[in-house]
Design a protein around this nucleic acid. Sequence first.
DNA 1: TAGTGGTCTAGACCACGTG
DNA 2: ACGTGGTCTAGACCACTAT
Lengths: 267, 267
Amino acid sequence: MSANPVSNANSPAPESGAHASAPTPAATTSPTFSPLYQQIKGLITQSLVSGEWKPGEIIPSEVELAARYKVSQGTVRKAIDELAAENLLVRRQGKGTFVATHNEERAQFRFLRLLADDGAEHPHVSKLLECRRLRASAEIARQLELKPADPVVLIRRLLQFDGESTVLDEIWLPGNVFRGLTAERLAEYKGPLYAMFEADFGTRMIRATEKIRAVAAEPMVADLLNIPAGFPLLSVDRVSYTYGDRPVEVRRGWYVTTGYYYQNDLS
Amino acid sequence: MSANPVSNANSPAPESGAHASAPTPAATTSPTFSPLYQQIKGLITQSLVSGEWKPGEIIPSEVELAARYKVSQGTVRKAIDELAAENLLVRRQGKGTFVATHNEERAQFRFLRLLADDGAEHPHVSKLLECRRLRASAEIARQLELKPADPVVLIRRLLQFDGESTVLDEIWLPGNVFRGLTAERLAEYKGPLYAMFEADFGTRMIRATEKIRAVAAEPMVADLLNIPAGFPLLSVDRVSYTYGDRPVEVRRGWYVTTGYYYQNDLS
DNA sequence: TAGTGGTCTAGACCACGTG
DNA sequence: ACGTGGTCTAGACCACTAT
């Protein structure tokens, strides 16, 4: 459908590209200059948001997109390069470019960074404790950018590593986005939560921020994790964002870090 | 000096580039294929390691480097792009490309990610507790890739945020690399430790890995941090690496996370 | 005005995956 | 053999910084 990049007054229109004979005299030195490939990036992102290309699916080839947007292949390449760097797309040489998924091998542990002391990624099972709908508290509403008392879904669950209860999670989701989410659906689903979110609710988690503290286990929490009250736990407050930096999940986790550690790479 | 890329049997020699009339018939489908820009990247990195271009200095322009390595500007551009993405170089439009430094604004808090509850980066002062030379324990030697009983430097220090003792650090460094490092030198130095390391010892920290746990404060630690014994602390085990992924620092930190949190961004 | 990095194009060939 | 992404080149122009 929509074809050409928006042709900012500033950005050179495709047909008046840098090499062409007819230069665009208007608006050099512009305050709102945005490179062509950024505009292409935006257009591709739009197609991702709109669901034209769904997670796991292949997107049109670079030459196709170049024709569609009326730019050179190098320009869409640079756009795709950045989207791939942001984990929105995945390139596979010889095959094509695909919409990223939380089902991929490499994406599995992108958000849960708890490793065993030997450095191995132990498999874990999720035990659902609770899933109910309620009204957002002021604090949750603020973090999810909702109005106070808007509907939210609260999920509480336990993660067990090798049979040991290691992580307790409390997850808040905007109720309007996750309409059909029920305890039954959660209980029957195997695999990463985020994989289900993107498959069933069209909401793909792109990035997240975490605030990490050491806290003493409160009695209720300690009981669920089979540790004494007061035991030191990692408290992880996460906010996850989807396309357009819209927050769509607030999560508080308590991690038992005996035998396990939270891995972080600074670079 | 050294000019041309190594001309892998596989990689096209510059003069027989993809567009040239004389193709290199030898060795298509090679197991050790490495793109030209990767080789250039290696050559640039060599110049960084050797100290030809020092932290803060400007490196030759893209066209100069292209001439020097006998490749196109686009190829050195791609090499520099990656090095900039890895925080080894910093590009500044209109000025040039510079060797990254731990003195820059943006690099200041790249490794210490402790923020106040309000999200602000509070200034902190470092109080040196101890600095002495000793022989590496087996564990430290292993992590620093030294032989057991090799000389190491141990630094212990306290970080105070707004006058409150918040972080206790134990830092091990290879003694042979940090020869002239003394308590006096440490005490008089203002600013990031890593800035001094790169300025005085030519060792620039490139990346680090951290293993984070929640632990109960031991009496000695608790005393230094003005908290009761058993208080929950963040235990941060860091290994820092310099060029060529050589480990050059082992650091264990204990963080008080009341009023502060460890910030992490997942993407 | 000159030099630097930043963008854009067009075209060639290479490596990979699949028929 | 063909199509996909990946590399490489050459040349043009734009945006920014300094002189």
